[in-house]
């Protein structure tokens, strides 16, 4: 729940942006950069690509902010915009890459049904580095999420991390409701297995 003062401040910022004030937009950018980047990074599973997508999100935001009418919270609206831009980017990347190298890709561009990969090994090194257990475990979990097969990762991030409903996810990804649920349970199973493997 955002406070009244914060709401007023944000509403003023948005209004200024809608009137073309780029300084106000920079303030809005600073405020939402981390949240937006986190979402995009988990969806794209690649830091460099996430940076490009995040830039695209804010460029689109500048062009579309006039459409924001205050019916929903701004953060929710931006969140939806970021998800859409990221998913479009991922879809586009997949389509041209598939079209070009279809005879070089053997497995639908996805990883196999195991997420216990190099990231786990990398993160295992942190075990000995004296980091707090909680933080280390969360880093491991984040790395494993990025190693999930693409469809499972997108569903998991949107449902479990970002709080979307399966109906919304199905619509966003163009898949059946049942597929969204199935991918979520697949992701959960893979993550749990990956974390267990790491602990042993």
């Amino acid at each position: 729940m955002i406070s009244e003062a914060l709401y007023r401040e944000e509403a003023a910022l948005i209004l200024a942006c809608q009137q073309g004030d780029q300084r106000a937009f920079k303030v809005l950018y600073d405020k939402y950069l981390a949240r937006t980047y986190s979402l995009v990074r988990r969806l794209a599973a690649d830091e460099g690509e996430a940076e490009e997508i995040t830039q695209e999100v804010f460029i689109r935001l500048w062009r579309k902010i006039g459409d924001f009418n205050g019916e929903s919270q701004f953060s929710t609206w931006l969140h939806r915009l970021a998800s859409t831009v990221a998913l479009n980017h991922i879809r586009k990347r997949k389509s041209w890459w598939r079209r070009l190298v279809s005879d070089f890709v053997t497995t639908d561009g996805e990883y196999s049904d195991s997420v216990a990969t190099s990231s786990v090994v990398t993160n295992t090194a942190a075990h000995a580095s004296g980091q707090p257990v909680e933080a280390r475990e969360l880093e491991d979990l984040d790395s494993l999420i990025c190693k999930l097969p693409e469809q499972a990762r997108l569903v998991f991030v949107l449902f479990a991390v970002e709080g979307y409903r399966h109906g919304e996810i199905a619509k966003l990804l163009g898949i059946a409701l049942g597929s969204s649920k199935a991918q979520y349970f697949r992701a959960r199973k893979l993550l749990a297995e990956g974390l267990n493997e790491q602990n042993n």
Partner: peptide, 20 residues
Amino acid sequence: QLGHEGMPNRDLWPGIEQAI
């Protein structure tokens, strides 16, 4: 408990500013 405060490795603002 996963964080939502990750930050990019480079400054993204100059590119955005140029585009807008």
